[in-house]
């Protein structure tokens, strides 16, 4: 337990951003605490201030708006998992939230915290990416909007500035499409994903892939959408060979981005394998 940090709890976004504009570089926002409290315990937290953002109304709530599906950064994973709106418009996000951490962690952790922490294996990252999500940030110079995949600069390195807060996410809603989120862990709960994947897809009139968004997690420094895989599959009728080739491309791309490492021995075949399982329902339905 560190006794030298100071606790501050703004009650509005204005207060929070105001504090950050003065003290941002020395401040760490506290959302769900499921990552931050671990760094306090280990002594790794270097911040002077811990800013509790849990009582900021502007960070809360899930709503379909003119811009898209808006999810407040301070929304907990459990709230997302139990939201009817999310179930209808972003079921792939819901699925990732249902298997996130543990029940206790889901009750505390927030989607904003998950993205801001920038872990390569953050469970909500791939679903947000396939929803072509925009992260809305607020800082001293006002609002800034970035594609969610640009929220992370590298493993545990956020692109969210020290004087900024993620306020909310705007997802392109996706109703009625095929969706899937899968992850491989060393056990069935409370396991950091070794490999994760999210997909949104739709077939066109002739049964070929008309629309697809695919994102790979836990395999690259930052979860990434792989357009090569999307492009390859678009317009194709899915069969086992086509899907297998898609998986091969995904693995190839992973190695291109991450380089060959000791973990590649497992991850290369696992990415191929998981990709097959990911799209199998689309093959089977034919």
């Amino acid at each position: 337990m560190r006794s030298d940090v100071r606790y501050v709890r703004p009650s509005s976004l204005g207060e929070a951003v105001g504090f950050l504009s003065d003290h941002g570089p020395e401040t760490k926002p506290l959302a769900g605490g499921t990552d931050l409290l671990i760094s306090i315990r280990s002594g790794e937290l270097k911040a002077r201030y811990v800013m509790d953002v849990n009582r900021i109304p502007e960070l809360k709530g899930i709503a379909m708006t003119g811009e898209g599906l808006s999810i407040g950064a301070g929304t907990t994973i459990a709230e997302i998992a139990s939201s009817e709106t999310v179930k209808r418009l972003a079921p792939v996000l819901r699925k990732s939230c249902l298997s996130f951490g543990s029940p206790q962690v889901r009750n505390a952790a927030t989607i904003g915290g998950n993205i801001a922490n920038a872990s390569p294996s953050a469970d909500t990252f791939p679903p947000l990416i396939v929803h072509e999500t925009i992260a809305v940030l607020s800082g001293p110079d006002g609002e800034r909007r970035i594609p969610v995949e640009e929220a992370a600069a590298g493993p545990y390195k956020s692109n969210v500035g020290s004087r900024e807060l993620i306020v909310r996410f705007i997802l392109k809603p996706s109703e009625g499409r095929f969706f899937e989120f899968l992850k491989i862990g060393r056990r069935k709960t409370l396991a950091i994903a070794r490999v994760s994947m999210a997909v949104l897809a739709e077939k066109d009139m002739r049964g070929a892939v008309g629309f697809i968004r695919f994102c790979l997690g836990s395999s690259t420094p930052v979860p990434c959408r792989i357009v090569e895989v999307e492009d390859f599959l678009t317009g194709k009728i899915l069969n086992e060979a086509v899907v297998a080739e898609g998986g091969r491309l995904a693995a190839e791309k992973m190695i291109e981005i991450s380089g060959r490492r000791s973990t590649t021995v497992y991850k290369e075949p696992a990415v191929k394998g998981l990709f097959n399982r990911l799209l199998y329902p689309m093959v089977k339905n034919d």
Partner: peptide
């Protein structure tokens, strides 16, 4: 056993 990922139940 999932033979594509090595997961075991």
């Amino acid at each position: 056993v999932d033979i594509t990922t090595g997961e075991v139940t």
